[in-house]
Structure formats: structure tokens, C-alpha cells
Design a protein around this nucleic acid. Structure first.
Lengths: 212, 212
DNA sequence: TTGACAACATACCCGGTAGTATGTTCATCA
DNA sequence: TGATGAACATACTACCGGGTATGTTGTCAA
């Protein structure tokens, strides 16, 4: 069988389009991005995109899903680590923030998707897909929710309402998606330091004790 | 002179349009909102809107400006209060969060405007107006920045980078704009409690000591 | 070698929307 | 009382962008 190579090439073709689309959605928003824009960013035409995706909404959903899969993959290694919950939280939070930075175009698109879903700006069948994706994101939030609840039980976090605390925590951890942009001559250590400040801010916000 | 009444009526007519437009922009975004949508929300037609605003961009800018003016007005009473800076910060932060809730449609529009500006999705002349508005917002951020710097000098706040701290703080204080929605039977005390949790989270994030 | 299909490009249609041009109504004022 | 203009509504145009229908090229299998 020589099907393995074509399949990989197809995945590659899709991945290239997804990446270009994510950047366009980040830079221009959903409605302001035309299929022609995405095609132009690829040095191609509409035909290429409509060959791999059924519609603009389908393309958008695919970027959304890819972004969420990246998030799951990023925190997966730390979910079931032994020890105190607050320790797991710190690892997961760090991985999450780092992911916001390295896959910013996809994460911005995820954000756009959530906003659109809250506004209900979709067709009935597309809405089903979006419901699935938003649930996927909600479940992802649930992972963190469980951890901070456990950490509170263990006396490491202090907060009133769990839902509000989780909202505020995610707001903080996601924020680099909006204001981070790479600086010239930026080192790995610079980014680590930045991520550290964000995680610390969220940690404090959750009522975590000051680390030494 | 009987001009006083017509002028007030004109302001009123503009204010009604601004309010309807803010709600539409919040619910649908900029591009997804048509002038016909805004007109329909008013029980009117396009003619009414184009009689008071030169273009869709002009209408949007006006909503943006109105939102920012509300913010300035909200924190103004506390800016120059005597005492420690962290005390002023708490008053200002409280007023700001409350403003995010009570004028949510306008604040969402402000957010949309900032996003659009960062993407540079405007015509040259419209860009001049947007530059002015974004500067207005930047100055508003500067007010808080001064206060948290002062509070750090006074030993009440602890954080590394001022810009990052200010970004994270605003992210937290603004967040209700995205997830708050009024509940049935909600009392004034409920809202105050909610605002309190948000302010406390930001306070902690800035490294403020635990209040008794 | 040929035919079949994937992977595009090109050309076109058509609905929606910003903006305009032109009524229409009503109040005010000389 | 008639003229004037503000405050709209109505009717229309021009254009942009999603989607489709159709052409073109290269590759692989029989």
C-alpha cells in the first residue's frame, strides 16, 4: 500500500491551511477574514481551501479544535501527578500559559469561537459542531476546576465561589494571548520569566501562600 | 432662544442610537452588526442613524468614546483621595469593576475597538480617530499604573514588571465584561459581593497583603 | 500509454450590506 | 400662512465575499 504517504501529505496540506487560517483569524477576526485572505497568505486561491474544507465555518471549527487539542496535550503530562493538588496546578498552569504563547494564533481563534458561540452566530448544523467544541473547552476548564477545588480542600488555596475563581484564574492565564508579542532578541529564559509572573499572579489570586 | 431644547433632544436622539448600537456590537461584533440591525433595534430605519452619524465607523467610535468617558467619570472621585495609594486603588478598582457590569455593552464595544485597532483594520482618517481613542484608553490605564507603582513604593504591593502587572490587573478587573450576566432576583448586595471577589483577586495578584 | 483521480486554479453567481439620493412630515418662525 | 429646515423613511446603487461549477495539471496504477 502506498496510501500512507498521500495521507500524510493530505494532513500536511490541511495543517498548512489551518496555520494560515489561524493567523488570519487572529489578525483580522472571523467576519473580516475572507477565504481569499487565507488563500493569499498561502500564495494560493480559494480552490485549494475549498478542496480541503467544506466551508468557512468548517475551516474555523477545525482551527478551534486544533487549538483545543494542543491545550489538552500540553497539560496531559501533569494531570495525574502524585502529591499535593497545588503542585499539579502550578505545572498545569505553567504549561497552559506557555501554550497560549507558542500557539497564539490558534488560541485567539478559540477565543473568537467562544465569543461567537455565546452570541449564537451560527447556523443550526454548524451550531452542533460549535456546541461540541465549546463543551470540549468547558471540559478542559473542568480539569483545572477539579484541581483548585482539591487544593482548597488541602488548605493551599482560599477563595469563595469556585466558578468565579475559575473564571478569574483562566482570565489571567489566558491573558498573554491578547498582550504578548515576541520581542527581538527574546530568549527562552525571558519567556519563562514572563510565564512565571503570570502563573504567580494567578496563584496569588487563588489565595495561594507565598512561595519562598 | 429656544435652541436649548432641540440641542438636548438631539443629544437624546444620539444617546438612544449609541445605546442600541452598543448592545448590537456586544451581541454580534462589529462586522456582523449591520446598520439595519441597529435601526431595527430602535424600531427605525437607516435614515435615522445616517442623519446623526456619518458612517458605521463614526457610530462605532462614538460608542467607544462614550464607554471611555463613563470609565473616567467612575474613577474620578477617588483619584486624588488622601491616604495610602493601595486605599485609592481599592476604591478605583471597585468603581471600575462596577462600571464594567453596569455599562457592559459599551465596555464590550471598547474591547472590540481595541482589538480592531491592534489589527489595524481601519481607513487612514478613521485610524486617526481610533488612535485618539486608544490613547484615551491608554491614559486611563496610566492612572491605575501610577497608583500601583506608588503602592509598591509604600510597601503595600509586590510585583516584578509594572507593565505586566498592570496588564494582568486590568485583565482581571475587566473580565466580568465577558462572563457576567444578570441573574433573576439578583440584589444589589449580590453584585457588590461579586465585585468584591474580583477586586480581591486582583488585589492578591498585585501582591497585596490579606485584609482582615 | 491511458485513464482516472487528487489537488489545485479560474470564472462565475448571488445574497447581503454600506452608503446615497430622494421623498415626506412636522414644527418653528418671520 | 407660507417658507424653511430638522428628523426621519424609502428606494436605489455598488461592491464585496461565500460558495459553486468547471477547467487544468501532475501522478500513479493497470
Amino acid at each position: 500500500m502506498t496510501l500512507a504517504v498521500p495521507e500524510q501529505m493530505q494532513d500536511r496540506a490541511r495543517a498548512d491551511i489551518l496555520s494560515a487560517a489561524a493567523t488570519c483569524f487572529m489578525e483580522r477576526g472571523y467576519s473580516e477574514t475572507s477565504i481569499d485572505d487565507v488563500a493569499h497568505a498561502l500564495g494560493a486561491t480559494k480552490g485549494r481551501i475549498y478542496h480541503h474544507f467544506r466551508s468557512k465555518a468548517d475551516l474555523f471549527s477545525s482551527v478551534f479544535r486544533a487549538g483545543m487539542e494542543m491545550n489538552y496535550a500540553a497539560v496531559e503530562p501533569y494531570r495525574l501527578l502524585p502529591g499535593r493538588a497545588c503542585g499539579r496546578w502550578r505545572r498545569m498552569a505553567h504549561a497552559h500559559v506557555m501554550q497560549m504563547i507558542v500557539s497564539k494564533p490558534f488560541q485567539r481563534t478559540v477565543w473568537l469561537g467562544v465569543e461567537m458561540h455565546l452570541r449564537g452566530a451560527t447556523t443550526p448544523q454548524q451550531r452542533a459542531v460549535m456546541n461540541d467544541l465549546v463543551r470540549m473547552r468547558s471540559d478542559y476548564g473542568g480539569i483545572f476546576r477539579e484541581v483548585i477545588v482539591k487544593a482548597r480542600e488541602e488548605g493551599d488555596f482560599r477563595f469563595e465561589d469556585v466558578s468565579i475563581a475559575n473564571q478569574l484564574m483562566f482570565t489571567t492565564l489566558n491573558s498573554p494571548v491578547f498582550w504578548y508579542s515576541p520581542r527581538t532578541g527574546e530568549t527562552r529564559a525571558d519567556i519563562e520569566n514572563l510565564v512565571g509572573q503570570v502563573v504567580t499572579c494567578a496563584w496569588r489570586g487563588l489565595g495561594g501562600r507565598e512561595e519562598t
